[in-house]
Design a protein around this nucleic acid. Structure first.
Lengths: 194, 194
DNA sequence: GTCTATAGAAGGATAGAC
DNA sequence: GTCTATCCTTCTATAGAC
């Protein structure tokens, strides 16, 4: 049963993935899901035990999609620094917030099963950033005297914080400024390495 | 009428300020406020037209308190770089999230009146960071060839993103790592200036 | 598998006594 | 100003027919 056509099941999941990004978990009601998917009450509760499990399946799919999109940016044939700047400068709709980490402040993040996909997504990015930083240091393109793991966390924090600033100021430029400052700091660690 | 003892009014506001930090706006119900403050329905709706105005007054008070706390860290008698590190390393309960910016992803941030206090709070910090960075550059303690305004935004983003990472990983150390990486990048811009 | 109808609880606000 | 009682809507889930 898991993988057939599942017309209504698939449409429900599609709607949930949209709504989780647009409104978050608590502000998304089962009724909203039904309205957007065109399914009836019965379909939803036939395929999923309840709202939590519904969100859990959707979040895991979203996280997998986003991890794959990130991996494209970190293609191994690119130079390490190019991968990092490709990630920082990737196109983002800053006002929409991070598709997964937007849930960070909802009480539902206290549920391990719902937090896990978000966590895996963020860990995946940190891991890609860290190894790229290490390679750049090894190649002599970046100063070797900083902790790649910490700076990787910093760069991800700049992106996630950039979403917060953009939304609060209702101005996508705040994300660009945050990333611009990070780039300038990295450039200094670059020039000094040469 | 605005400023007398207002026993119940004050207790209601105290409760709202706590709940906004703990749960955010949407997850805070008027009933929660009454339970925690010990007030009755009538008191709440006597002093405030509704939930939105209640949150608005509370948020403005919270923002004023936090701006004052930030100003202590940026005391003018400190050296510019010391102010910046004092802000970065200030004590934070990372798992609780930012007292104001935790609301960034709630739909209520589309309401200008509610967004304004949060925005003012963040702008205040960026302003303090920017002028301290500029002074440090002028004093020759930091490289002069980066945009202080952009790096100021970056540093605030690291803090706000640090909250997001800490909450998602349910590990306050993520905040420390994000700040540690930012510090290492700043140190490079410091050493090079000498 | 999908639907409509319904239920129990919580959210947000009002009425009116004191 | 403060209280309790009440109201209407929305949320989340269940029942049961097709």
């Amino acid at each position: 049963m898991p993988q057939k056509t599942h017309s209504k099941r698939a449409e429900i999941l599609r709607a949930v993935k949209e709504l989780l990004w647009e409104r978050g978990y608590e502000a998304m009601s089962p009724r909203d899901v039904l309205d957007r998917s065109g399914a009836g009450q019965g379909s939803l509760y036939h395929h999923f035990p309840g709202k939590v499990e519904l969100a859990c399946v959707a979040l895991n799919e979203m996280a997998a999609e986003e991890r794959a999109a990130v991996d494209v940016l970190f293609a191994p044939d690119r130079k390490p620094l190019d991968r990092i700047y490709a990630y920082l400068n990737r196109e983002r709709d800053a006002l929409r917030g991070c598709r997964l980490a937007r849930l960070a402040n909802e009480s539902v993040m206290e549920n391990l099963e719902l937090r896990k996909p978000v966590k895996r997504f963020l860990e995946h990015i940190i891991d890609r950033l860290r190894s790229s930083l290490e390679e750049a240091q090894f190649d002599g393109d970046l100063l070797p005297d900083f902790e790649a793991a910490e700076v990787a966390t910093t760069l991800l924090a700049v992106v996630e914080g950039g979403f917060v600033l953009a939304r609060t100021h209702w101005d996508a430029n705040r994300m660009k400024q945050a990333l611009g400052g990070a780039t300038q700091l990295l450039r200094i660690a670059e020039r000094k390495a040469r």
